[in-house]
C-alpha cells in the first residue's frame, strides 16, 4: 500500500510536473477554458489514452521490449512519444533506486506505462493498482497543469478529480481485463482520438510553452 502511495505522490520525484497531458495545447487553442471543459477533456482522455496506459501498465508476462514497441505504435505523435519516454526515464531513474529490479535494466528510456508496470511489479503492487496509478497520473497531470495555466480554483479541480474516480476505476478495471485477455501485446487496446494528436504537434512547434507536452 505504501508503495502505491509513494508512486502516486507528486512529491516523489517522477518528473510528471513538466508535462500537462495535452492540457497546455488545448488551452492555447482556446478549446479548454474552465473546469467544465477540463471535465469534458478528461472524460474523453480517460476512456482512450487512459485505457491504453492502464492496460500496458497492468500487462504481465510479456517481453518488456515488445510491450514498449507496441506502445510506441499506439503513440503516432512524435511529440507525445518523446514526452512518454521522458517521463518513463524519470520514473526509471527514481524507481530503480526505490525498488531495484533487473527489469529496470532492459530499457534506458521506457515509455511511461511500461515504466509504471516495472515499478508496480518491483514494489509488489497488483495489476489493478498499476492500472489505477496510470489513470491517476493522467488525471493529476492534466488537473495540476490546468490550475497553473488557467488559474482555476484548486478546490473545484480537486472536486472534479474525486468526481472522476468511478470512471477512472472502471477504466482501470477494463485495462486489467484487456491485459489479461490479450494473448500477445498486439492485442492490447489502442483507443485514441484525433484532436490531441493534432495539437501535440502544434504544441511542439510553438516557441514558448510552460510544459514540455
Amino acid at each position: 500500500m505504501l508503495a502505491a502511495l509513494l508512486l502516486a505522490d507528486a512529491r516523489t520525484p517522477l518528473g510528471g510536473h513538466t508535462h500537462s497531458g495535452g492540457v497546455e495545447a488545448v488551452v492555447r487553442d482556446g478549446t479548454l477554458t474552465g473546469v467544465g471543459d477540463l471535465e469534458t477533456f478528461l472524460r474523453a482522455r480517460i476512456r482512450t489514452a487512459g485505457l491504453v496506459g492502464a492496460a500496458f501498465a497492468a500487462a504481465r508476462g510479456f517481453a518488456i521490449g515488445e510491450l514498449d514497441t507496441e506502445f510506441g505504435a499506439r503513440t503516432p505523435s512524435p511529440a507525445l512519444r518523446a514526452a512518454s519516454r521522458a517521463q518513463g526515464a524519470a520514473l526509471r531513474r527514481t524507481g530503480s533506486r526505490m525498488w531495484p529490479a533487473p527489469e529496470w535494466e532492459i530499457l534506458r528510456r521506457p515509455h511511461l506505462p511500461i515504466a509504471l508496470g516495472i515499478a508496480a511489479v518491483a514494489s509488489g503492487l497488483d495489476q489493478a493498482q498499476a492500472a489505477e496509478l496510470s489513470v491517476h497520473h493522467l488525471i493529476g497531470g492534466a488537473c495540476s497543469a490546468a490550475i497553473r495555466l488557467l488559474g482555476l480554483d484548486p478546490l473545484a479541480v480537486a472536486a472534479l478529480s474525486a468526481g472522476l474516480a468511478s470512471l477512472a476505476e472502471q477504466t482501470a478495471a477494463l485495462g486489467v481485463s484487456a491485459a489479461n485477455t490479450a494473448r500477445t501485446p498486439a492485442e492490447l487496446p489502442s483507443a485514441s482520438t484525433p484532436f490531441p494528436d493534432v495539437l501535440a504537434q502544434l504544441h511542439e512547434q510553438s516557441e514558448v510553452s510552460l510544459f514540455a507536452s
Binding site: 472524460r43 474523453a44 476512456r47 498486439a186
Partner: peptide, 27 residues
C-alpha cells in the same frame, strides 16, 4: 512483423466528451 501503427480511432457524434477538446473538438 514489427508494429508501426496501431490506432483505434473512437468517434461518437452523440457523446459530449468525444466531441470535446480531447475528442474531435466539435468538428
Amino acid at each position: 512483423g514489427a508494429p508501426l501503427l496501431d490506432q483505434e480511432t473512437v468517434l461518437d457524434g452523440a457523446d459530449r466528451a468525444l466531441c470535446g477538446p480531447a475528442g474531435t473538438s466539435g468538428m
